[in-house]
Design a protein around this nucleic acid. Structure first.
Length: 113
DNA sequence: CCCTTGACCAAAC
DNA sequence: GGTTTGGCCAAGG
């Protein structure tokens, strides 16, 4: 059991656990889309992923702010999109009008396909 | 078990 | 370029 992991003995949050695990693999300065995460999980639960982020019990532990929309937009954030943008800018990701600059370039791919 | 909600996505208008 | 609609999956009421 990982230090940031929560009880999955119930088996209810297996999805969340995997989501956080994948997100944890994302380095600073890089961003991933909800779709990519869902795809990496082998599912299409884009929304479920977003839901897990909103519930994200490990705010600073899991870089949920590195997750953006497929359009390259910031999307949403539990603490406010501005906070998310600020974090991304701090990580080195340029954001313009709520959109990622060179999104495809900053985008991190699981397994590099 | 049915219905609603959600930090989504893609297509269509 | 925007908005609207349908679809998708998971969790909660």
């Amino acid at each position: 059991m990982k230090p940031w992991d929560l009880k999955n003995d119930s088996g209810s949050i297996a999805f969340n656990e995997k989501t956080y695990e994948l997100l944890r693999q994302v380095p600073a300065g890089k961003v991933v889309t909800y779709a990519d995460i869902a795809r990496a999980l082998g599912t299409k639960a884009y929304r479920a992923v977003g839901n897990a982020m909103n519930k994200n019990p490990y705010a600073p532990h899991v870089p949920c702010h590195r997750v953006v929309n497929s359009d390259g937009r910031i999307g949403g954030f539990a603490l406010g999109c501005e906070k998310k943008t600020a974090l991304l800018e701090k990580e080195g990701v340029d954001v313009k009008s709520g959109k990622i600059v060179d999104f495809e370039k900053k985008r991190f791919q699981f397994g590099a396909h």
